[in-house]
Design a binder for these strands. Structure first.
Length: 656
DNA sequence: CTAGGGTTAG
């Protein structure tokens, strides 16, 4: 509330204004003398009520007490309607229920169910289930009959603290007392079960509700989506008779969150075709789906849609943050920076996305600078994701000491507890720097149970530094935690291969076979300027330009050899002849994609290649040197991050 | 006054 506002409030309701108001009302014929008194107090209630409504998050407790003073002076301190409203507002503003709001309630002599409920709900939202229940007990003792709103508040409290048992008790009581269920209470019940993680109970309530509205449906759809069960979500959604914007959005974001971007886009299209408007939340989900597809033609479409819906990143934080992430993942970090700078409001999502974007593209120093700017020049507080971003930046740039410092400060200075994700970054940081024993030590002293990522980072480091002994330790834990992820086995096999241990390679291959796992086939792709995608698979395939591609590669190899290029035979994890290794290497999909791009794009444009797996050492060297002899900028995205090859150097500093 | 929200590591 601004100063000007509070000044207006303080004069709005003085006795002169009230008597003026009453004269005006009589003149207008709205009231007659007989009921002037009750009518004026009703009007007073309306005025005071609108005064309370104007309190907002910026209001300090002093101003609230000032308003309370007005309420008392106007003789409205016994009005349940006004006091309940005041308490609801205090709750919204985050004022703790004890002692102030509760005292205000206790000062009212004759309390109605709505006043009690406002207090119960206040405790509920602040996570104080026991106090909420005790208030409910007091209310019953006074002989007040609860209303549906009361049960809604109690159920909300149970959901908030995830107390399934108490939730069940109130569920039963609700039906006993009322005999029937309002849609509203039913919806709160669904929400309670969902929050308690019991989606089946939520479904049961839904199925038994005599009457449902679109909110009941959407709650359940979103719960299925959050649980990763998009089949049930779609099924439910299709049977929803009238789908509104929020329901559609739940589907779009649901697919986006479950790594099904194509479906997210489909639902967005269907939504548009049904003539339903999209709002900021819908568009954010759409952008997130585009980001996952990682192709600029989707990026353009996302920007176009955001523009059409009237959501510019300048004024909409959610849209801006989503766009930053999308541009970064599409390989256009410059545009991401551009969006970031254009934003009027930036929050922790905007900063974290930007820091992660810079880290992903190997611009570690800028990522660190941005982080430092954020913590020293803004009021934005870093969260757990922000630290993943900064630590990733350190690890990709080999900044061991800085990383250690930041890791220490995150808990000490910023109160963010390290999770397995942060330990993953630390293990990666130390591991890449060749300090495998230190990395192992970090894992042993972790304050949380290490997840697969932590051991995976260690195994990855063993691949770089060719250390089969530590690799076996890492693999043992990793295979227990993630027995079905083929990439883990391949990684171990690569470590053995790089050490020339072909028995080891063979044993891993057997293990893969026994588990019935299938190797993920490699694929690289490029998008031409008409938006068409060209995919390249391993070995020879029937691409119309195959001959030209082969010629180009042969010529390129010759030019690179002059610069000292030698095929890195240790990148081939098979025990075959050196000639065979050379011919396998030259058929790696990203090399085919590179040759294709050289043949089909103009000399001054940069080349953008995507790949679903990690790039091998040989391809990395090849790309680096190719950027030198061709004078082209090559942007290459593997399954983890981006490499910018320019004039014979890579943004990752050959550190990946 | 009960529903949908963008960023996470190997």
């Amino acid at each position: 509330m601004t100063v000007a506002h509070s000044h207006r409030f303080s004069t709005a309701l003085n006795p002169i204004n009230i008597s003026l108001l009453s004269k005006q009302l009589i003149q207008l014929g709205r009231i007659n003398n007989a009921d002037t008194f009750s009518e004026i107090s009703r009007q007073k209630e309306v005025l005071v009520s609108s005064l309370i409504s104007k309190l907002d998050v910026c209001t300090g407790l002093d101003q609230i007490k000032q308003v309370h003073g007005h309420i008392i002076r106007q003789g409205l301190d016994q009005s349940c309607y006004i006091i309940a409203k005041l308490i609801r507002t205090l709750t919204k503003l985050g004022v703790p229920m004890d002692p102030y709001p509760r005292r205000v309630m206790e000062s009212v002599q004759f309390r109605n169910p709505f006043l009690w409920t406002a207090v119960i709900r206040g405790y509920a939202i602040q996570g104080k289930l026991l106090e909420a229940i005790s208030m409910y007990g007091c209310m019953r003792k006074e002989g007040i009959t609860p209303v549906s709103f009361t049960f809604s508040a109690l159920l909300k409290a149970c959901g908030f603290v995830r107390d399934l048992n108490l939730g069940r008790q109130f569920h039963a009581q609700t039906f006993r007392l009322r005999g029937f269920c309002f849609v509203y209470v039913g919806n709160t019940m669904i929400d309670m079960y969902v929050k308690c993680g019991s989606i089946d109970c939520a479904r049961k309530v839904f199925d038994e509700m005599p009457e449902r509205d679109v909110i009941s449906w959407t709650e359940l759809i979103a719960a299925y989506a959050r649980a990763g069960n998009m089949e049930s979500a779609s099924e439910l959604f299709e049977s929803l008779p009238t789908k509104d914007m929020v329901a559609w959005t739940a589907m779009v974001t649901g697919f986006a969150q479950n790594a099904k971007p194509q479906e997210a886009l489909e639902y967005f299209d269907r939504m548009e075709k049904s003539g339903i408007r999209a709002d900021e939340v819908t568009v954010a989900g759409f952008i997130s789906a585009c980001a996952q597809l990682g192709a600029s033609k989707y990026a353009d479409r996302a920007v176009e849609i955001a523009r059409k819906c009237g959501y510019s990143p300048r004024d909409h934080v959610v849209i801006g943050s989503a766009l930053i992430d999308m541009y970064s993942k599409c390989g256009n970090v410059e545009e991401a920076l551009h969006v970031f700078e254009s934003m009027n409001n930036k929050n922790v999502f905007s900063y974290s996305s930007m820091i992660l974007g810079l880290a992903m593209h190997g611009r570690a120093q800028e990522a660190l600078d941005l982080f430092n700017y954020m913590v020293t020049h803004t009021t934005v507080k870093p969260n757990t994701v922000t630290f993943v971003g900064v630590l990733t930046a350190c690890s990709h740039a080999g900044l061991v000491d800085q990383g250690r410092q930041i890791f220490a400060s995150m808990h000490q200075t910023f109160g963010v507890k390290p999770t397995s994700d942060h330990y993953t970054c630390m293990v990666d940081l130390l591991g890449r720097a060749g300090r495998l024993q230190e990395a192992l030590e970090v894992i042993k002293t972790m304050s949380v149970e290490p997840h697969g990522g932590v051991w995976g980072a260690l195994l990855g480091a063993c691949r770089i530094h060719k250390d089969p002994d530590v690799a076996e330790i890492a693999a043992k834990h990793l295979f227990e935690l993630e027995p079905d992820i083929i990439g883990n086995y391949i990684l171990l096999s690569n470590v053995y291969a790089s050490a020339g241990d072909w028995d080891g390679v063979l044993s891993v291959r057997k293990l893969i076979k026994r588990k019935g796992l299938k190797k993920t086939p490699a694929v690289s792709w490029v998008v031409d300027n008409r938006g068409k995608m060209h995919k390249f698979f391993p070995g020879y395939m029937n691409h119309p330009m195959l001959n030209k591609i082969e010629d180009t590669l042969e010529e390129l190899v010759q030019r690179l050899t002059v610069l000292g290029y030698q095929p890195d035979l240790s990148s081939v994890p098979y025990n075959v002849s050196d000639d065979e290794k050379r011919s396998i290497l030259i058929r790696h999909t990203e090399k085919l994609a590179l040759a294709f791009s050289l043949l089909t794009t103009s000399r001054d444009s940069s080349i953008k290649i995507m790949k679903n797996l990690r790039m091998c050492q040989d391809c990395h060297t090849f790309m680096r040197l190719a950027s030198e002899v061709t004078g082209r900028v090559i942007i290459m995205r593997d399954n983890m991050r981006f490499h910018h090859f320019r004039s014979g150097a890579c943004s990752c500093g050959d550190f990946w």
